[in-house]
Computed example of a mutant assay.
Amino acid sequence: MARSTTKHFSGNEKEIAELIKENLVWKEDLSYAGEEINFLSKFLEADVFQKNILNLYEKIQIFCSQLDSFRTQNLDLSMEVHNNKYDIQGMLECEDISCEIFYHDEHLKLGMRIMEFIKNFKEFKLEVFSYTSGLLKKSSKEM
């Protein structure tokens, strides 16, 4: 007798598979944001800006401080996404709907926080790029 190699999922297992896919997307988005944070940190600390710009140093320090805050948020969210993967798998252990609803709601809340973080980080990057783009040295000989 031939055995079927296809696994049939219950409704709960299908939903769990979708939540795990969403978790993976979050992990990738936060990893990418982490790389952007590292780049922006190096960019802001590099000697690539024109000299004698009024309040340049102060503005760069404000950006660096904000960047540190984004780095912390990114690390915290990344840890929560890591833990969320196990919470999703824990939904299989649920014996009643209230248990599943709890884990699902927590997943949705985390998703909203990640979307808010990404939105705020995009706005921050735009502010940094808008401010610094006209202040870059035109050549390496500029002082």
Results as ranks from 00 to 15, higher is better:
134 G>F: 10
67 L>G: 01
18 E>F: 06
139 S>T: 15
26 W>A: 02
38 N>E: 13
62 I>W: 01
107 H>W: 10
61 Q>A: 07
13 E>H: 05
48 V>T: 11
118 I>R: 05
97 I>N: 12
59 K>L: 04
14 K>D: 03
143 M>F: 14
38 N>F: 08
3 R>Y: 00
23 N>D: 07
123 E>I: 13
46 A>T: 02
122 K>Q: 12
98 S>F: 13
123 E>Y: 10
92 L>N: 11
106 E>G: 14
97 I>W: 09
80 E>S: 07
27 K>G: 03
101 I>K: 15
136 L>S: 04
59 K>I: 08
77 L>S: 00
100 E>H: 09
11 G>T: 13
31 S>T: 13
138 K>D: 14
6 T>Q: 05
102 F>W: 07
115 M>V: 09
77 L>V: 03
139 S>F: 05
61 Q>V: 03
12 N>E: 14
64 C>Y: 03
95 E>N: 05
1 M>N: 00
126 L>G: 05
113 R>C: 09
59 K>F: 02
87 D>G: 03
47 D>F: 04
30 L>E: 00
89 Q>G: 11
65 S>Q: 13
134 G>I: 10
27 K>N: 08
129 F>W: 14
109 K>P: 02
46 A>G: 12
114 I>E: 01
43 F>P: 00
111 G>P: 03
78 S>I: 00
49 F>S: 07
101 I>S: 11
20 I>L: 15
143 M>H: 14
109 K>V: 13
120 N>V: 06
136 L>T: 12
82 H>Y: 10
107 H>E: 07
142 E>G: 05
100 E>T: 13
130 S>Y: 08
106 E>L: 09
85 K>M: 07
98 S>P: 01
4 S>V: 00
84 N>R: 10
106 E>V: 09
25 V>D: 09
2 A>S: 08
115 M>R: 15
103 Y>Q: 09
80 E>V: 03
19 L>W: 08
84 N>Y: 01
33 A>F: 02
38 N>T: 11
26 W>S: 04
23 N>T: 10
126 L>I: 15
25 V>K: 08
111 G>W: 05
22 E>W: 02
2 A>Q: 02
81 V>W: 00
99 C>S: 13
9 F>W: 04
53 I>G: 03
6 T>I: 07
133 S>E: 15
15 E>M: 13
62 I>P: 00
15 E>N: 13
19 L>H: 04
66 Q>P: 01
88 I>W: 00
94 C>M: 06
7 K>P: 00
131 Y>F: 15
71 R>S: 10
115 M>Q: 15
100 E>G: 01
51 K>M: 08
17 A>E: 13
131 Y>G: 06
24 L>Q: 12
84 N>C: 09
25 V>W: 01
38 N>I: 06
40 L>M: 12
32 Y>V: 08
90 G>K: 06
66 Q>F: 05
10 S>P: 01
42 K>V: 12
13 E>G: 04
71 R>W: 00
126 L>F: 11
101 I>P: 06
86 Y>A: 11
119 K>I: 05
77 L>C: 02
29 D>I: 01
44 L>P: 02
98 S>H: 11
21 K>S: 08
69 S>M: 11
138 K>E: 14
64 C>M: 11
93 E>A: 11
84 N>G: 02
30 L>R: 00
17 A>G: 04
71 R>M: 06
22 E>Q: 14
49 F>T: 03
51 K>G: 12
143 M>I: 15
14 K>E: 07
90 G>W: 04
129 F>A: 14
